[in-house]
């Protein structure tokens, strides 16, 4: 069975700007992939290339085996797309918009649409121009989700939603996963990605710099250690793998990469009273990648 999303060396260049470079990515059926990166990293460009509404400079993008660049309309038969900014027809009502987009999509689970309308506490009788930004976002979320498409392409879908509605959105994604739908989820809400996604991809400057599941990524990343000690050992600062050491009084805070045993042995010798070892959050992993980029940038300067 063809992969829901498969890209090979997918590249997009705007003038002199490399928006996306040699993206190789393959998604598995039924997985939820978090797609991360700061503004301008290439997230939306990737999604628009997958939709075929941007033309690739080079490389391939396939949706369930269909070339999304050559046959976008065919590829779209199995896609639902939710953009982060909802620009809609102001004179239509919410209901008219849902009916229009549903008819164009072709597959609408009417019962599920009603569930979504209720879940998002959405009033479809109003005209689009009277909706707040959050309500417009709800409208396009419902329009995307109601089709039960095999692949959901979500581009910062919770922008503008309040925390309750963001929670309702998580329920929808969980349901989609439960039904075997595949979800490509671009977001800045790292806690949301952490809670929902099976795998995470991180983009930087149009290049994919990290792809894996959170467990693997954490395993390969530094642990955060806080300890209260009788005395602070001099060797700790020079121990291989230790970085970011902050010592005050009898307390130390640092990150440890690689084998943890030498660190623990040294701490034990120093009379440890309290010890807290924590895997990095997604936010810390993300910031670690971008911190590196900032450092490299500063060194370059």
């Amino acid at each position: 069975m063809a992969a829901p999303v498969k890209t090979e060396k997918l590249t997009k260049v705007f003038g002199k700007t490399e928006a996306l470079v040699d993206l190789d990515l393959e998604m598995n059926q039924g997985e939820v992939l978090g797609y991360l990166g700061p503004n301008g990293a290439g997230k939306t460009t990737t999604i628009r290339l997958l939709l075929g509404i941007l033309r690739a400079t080079s490389g391939l993008a396939r949706i369930f085996g269909v070339d999304a660049q050559a046959e976008p309309a065919k590829a779209h038969e199995r896609i639902a797309y939710v953009p982060g900014e909802a620009s809609l027809w102001p004179g239509l009502t919410g209901e008219e918009t849902l009916r229009l987009l549903g008819n164009i999509q072709g597959n609408v689970d009417v019962a599920y649409r009603e569930v979504l309308i209720e879940r998002f506490n959405f009033d479809p009788s109003r005209k689009v121009r009277t909706y707040s930004r959050g309500n417009r976002q709800k409208l396009i979320l419902i329009a995307g989700m109601m089709s039960r498409a095999d692949l959901l392409l979500l581009d910062e879908p919770t922008a503008g939603l309040d925390p309750l509605m963001a929670q309702a959105f998580r329920v929808c994604v969980d349901e989609a996963r439960g039904r075997g739908q595949t979800v490509f989820f671009s977001s800045h809400a790292l806690s949301e990605v952490e809670a929902l996604c099976d795998r995470v991809a991180i983009l930087r400057g149009g290049r994919l710099i990290e792809l894996g599941n959170l467990h693997e990524m954490r395993h390969l990343s530094a642990l955060t250690i806080d300890a209260d000690l009788d005395r602070i050992p001099d060797q700790l600062a020079t121990l291989v793998g230790v970085r970011g050491l902050v010592a005050s009084d009898h307390h130390v805070h640092f990150h440890a990469e690689g084998p943890v045993e030498p660190v623990l042995r040294l701490l034990a010798q120093a009379g440890t009273e309290h010890l807290l070892v924590r895997e990095p959050t997604l936010e810390e992993l993300f910031l670690a990648h971008y911190g590196q980029a900032v450092e490299e940038g500063q060194n370059g300067q």
Binding site: I53, Y81, S87, Q105, I140
Partner: peptide, 15 residues
């Protein structure tokens, strides 16, 4: 330009 076309062409509609 105002982004409404995205909603149509991201569905099974040929440009």
């Amino acid at each position: 330009a105002e982004g409404r076309l995205d909603h149509l062409l991201a569905r099974p509609v040929s440009p």
